[in-house]
Design a protein around this nucleic acid. Structure first.
Lengths: 202, 202
DNA sequence: CGCGTGATTGAAACCCTTCAAGTTTAGTGG
DNA sequence: CCACTAAACTTGAAGGGTTTCAATCACGCG
C-alpha cells in the first residue's frame, strides 16, 4: 500500500471510509513523473484524472499565437484533469505537464464508476466542484477588474507556497501579464515596501 | 400547473421523469419579477436557486471602487444562484437582479434535498457543473490572452441573442472593458466590415 | 417637452506590451 | 569542481491598447 497519502486525504474529507477505499483501491495506481513530463496534450482524449501526492503539475492552453495560458497549478493535495474530456470523451482543450518531479495517483473511469456508488463520495465531489466554480469566479472578477499588481498580490496571499515554487514566467502566464511586467510589478512593490532605509545584507 | 416549461426542461435533459417531477413539485414555486428587482444582495445568505423561464437575470460583484463586474447572464433555460452561499451558508459574494421582467422558478433547499434521491438528477447536476467549469475556463483563457475586440466577437458568436437584449454597458462589464471602449470596438468593426459602399437603409 | 440614462466621440494619460539588450541563475559536460 | 551554455529574470525605451474625463448626441419616459 503506497497510497497512504491519498487514502488519508479521502478519509479526512469524509469522501470514503477505510473499508470503502479498500474496495476501490484496485482501480488506482501510483506513478512518479520527471519534471517536464507531459501527461495530456491538446486534442487528445483525456482518460485519466490525477491526484498529486508530492510535486507540482500545471494545466494550460496554447493560443493561436503559440502563447501559453496557465489554467491551474496543482500542488500536493490537488486534483487535475480535463474533466470535460474525461467524462464526455471530447478532445481536450488543455495540456497537463509536470513543473517538478511529481508523485501522483492515477485514476481511471473505472475508479469513478465504482466510487459513485458511495453517497459520501458524491457529496465530496459535488462540494469540490462548487468550490472550483467559486474560485474560478473570483479569478474572473480579478481579471475583469483588477490591475496586474492587485492580481499579483492576491496570488501571493492566496498561494504563498506556490510563489516560491513556480517560475516567475509561469506565474505571469497565470496572472495574464508578461514576464517583464511581473518583474516590474515586483520591483516596484519591493521599492515601496522597503523604503525604510537599507536592509542589513551588506 | 404552471411549471410546464420547467417540467419539460427537466424531462428533455433526462433529469427527472414525469412521475418524479410530481413528487417534488410541491417544493417549488413560480414568481414573476419586474425589471430591476434585486433577488440577492452581497453579504446576504443565499437561500434560493432560480431557473429562468422567461426574461433575463444577471449576477455581478461590486468592487472596492464601486464598479460592477458581471459574472453571468441568465436568459431562458438558465440557472442562477450563489451556489456556494446556498449550499454552505456562507455570505454571498454577488448580487442577482433582473435585467428584464422575468418569470422564474424558485427552488429551495427542500427541492434539492428531495431530488438528490434521484440518480438521474444527480447525473444531470454534475454534468451541468462540469459544463459551467468548462465555460468559466474558456472565459478565463480569453480574459488572459485576448484583446477586447476578440472577446467581443467571441461573445457575439457565443450568445447572439443576448447581444441584442443586454445593454451595451453591461456587456462591457461582462467583457472586462469600459463602455467607451466597447463602443469604439464596435465602431471600428463596423467600419472594416461595411467598407463596400452604403447599406440600403435609405 | 424636458429630464435622465445610455451610447458616442475626442484628447490626454496610463498601464501594459513589445523588442532589444543586459544580468543572473541553473543545469551540464568536461 | 569549474567552465560553459541555455534559460530565467531584469531593465530600458518605444509603442499600442484601454482607460479616464469631458462633452455631445440619441432616445424613451413621465
Amino acid at each position: 500500500m503506497t497510497f497512504e497519502f491519498f487514502r488519508n486525504y479521502l478519509l479526512s474529507k469524509g469522501a470514503l471510509t477505510d473499508e470503502q477505499f479498500d474496495t476501490v483501491s484496485h482501480a488506482i495506481r501510483e506513478r512518479t513523473v520527471a519534471k517536464g513530463t507531459v501527461l495530456l496534450r491538446q486534442d487528445e482524449v483525456c482518460s485519466e484524472v490525477y491526484f498529486v501526492m508530492e510535486g507540482l503539475l500545471r494545466s494550460y492552453t496554447v493560443d493561436d499565437n503559440g502563447r501559453e495560458h496557465i489554467i491551474q497549478f496543482a500542488p500536493e493535495d490537488n486534483w487535475i484533469s480535463d474533466r470535460n474530456s474525461f467524462l464526455f470523451g471530447e478532445p481536450s482543450l488543455i495540456f497537463i505537464d509536470a513543473i517538478e518531479e511529481t508523485k501522483l495517483v492515477v485514476l481511471t473511469v473505472e475508479f469513478f464508476r465504482e466510487v459513485s456508488a458511495f453517497a459520501s463520495f458524491n457529496m465530496f465531489n459535488t462540494k469540490a466542484l462548487h468550490n472550483l466554480v467559486r474560485m474560478q469566479q473570483q479569478r474572473i472578477s480579478l481579471l475583469i477588474g483588477a490591475s496586474a499588481e492587485t492580481r499579483y498580490l492576491d496570488f501571493v496571499e492566496r498561494y504563498p507556497s506556490l510563489t516560491l515554487r513556480v517560475p516567475q514566467w509561469m506565474m505571469a502566464s497565470y496572472l495574464g501579464i508578461t514576464p517583464e511586467s511581473l518583474s516590474r510589478v515586483r520591483r516596484d512593490l519591493a521599492r515601496r515596501n522597503f523604503k525604510p532605509g537599507s536592509q542589513s545584507a551588506e
